[in-house]
Amino acid sequence: MKILVVTEQRDGQWNRASFETLTAAQQAARATGASITAVVAGKSVGSLAKELAAYKVAEVLAIEHDLLEKYTPDGYTLALKQVITEARPDFIFFPHTYQVRDFAPKLAASLGRGMIADCVGLRYENGHLVFVRQMFQGKTAADVIFQGDAPWFASFQAGAFRGDQAETGGSAAPRNVNVDLKPEQIRTKPLELFREAKQAVDLTQAPIIVAIGRGIKEPTNIPLAEKLAQTIGGEIAASRPICDEGWLPMERQIGSSGQTVAPKLYLAIGISGAIQHVVGMKGSRTIVAINKDANAPIFEVADYGIVGDLFEIVPALTEELAKSK
């Protein structure tokens, strides 16, 4: 059995989630006795391939082509399809990045195969791998198994495995694979990358964060949370829906599309704890959740929780904090 791990890089910089996927693959390989082939694609990826070769993998493939310098779904699909056809892996593992979401289902479908996306766990049971993913915004988990013929495609959520636990000690010499790509096969034209003008707030440096979610209900209620943030000496932040509504600027968004933070104290107020938010804050040292729904997934990651009406609890908490100073 063979597992192909598709890593991700941009302009020579790793997407660190690549190594989390490598850890997932190594775990699956230990259970099944599979061998691992790691692959990196781009215009010039020789040094990255060498870095991969230091890890405990059987084989490292470097796909180099001028048309892979900038990511396009057509370019990456066509290149990896050729590599998969040649390497004949049973499983293909990806980090569940925005880029992977953009092309991996297409790649699988181009081979008539399916993909189990955004997995948070993996186990070996009754002779096959069981993939665990979340449903209903994290309120439930699902055990999913593959059907039909290999190859089988899976991607792993950021933070589901630890990249620093990927085993090193490999001795594979990277091998270059040639792929056939023509400019006319690539239908999208990638243009410049940019960041929105101001990134004035660096939430990653804040020791305390007070984050609000849908539970805050109205923008006129935000001062309640702001007062708490002020009293406790923290920065105000939010889950995506609050920023989508324009109630707080996008730069204060925590989660997969916003900032990833790990403060010493994170207060999640009226935040249900959808996966997209939790990946951005679950590394925090102490997490407090205040929510009216005792079954909200945010309580899964919280150290302390208060179940109740935030409009009563937040002012009470602000008052207690002021008193204790």
Binding site: R113, V130, Q134, T140, A141, D143, V144, A302, D303, Y304
Partner: peptide, 28 residues
């Protein structure tokens, strides 16, 4: 089908959450 959901379930807690009870003031 290329995949099948075997079952769905409420996930097990990975972290022990201490729920603080009482009135808003007491919990705070």
């Amino acid at each position: 089908p290329t995949q099948r959901i075997e079952r769905i379930y409420v996930p097990k807690k990975t972290k022990k959450t201490e729920i603080l009870t009482g009135t808003a003031k007491e919990a705070a």
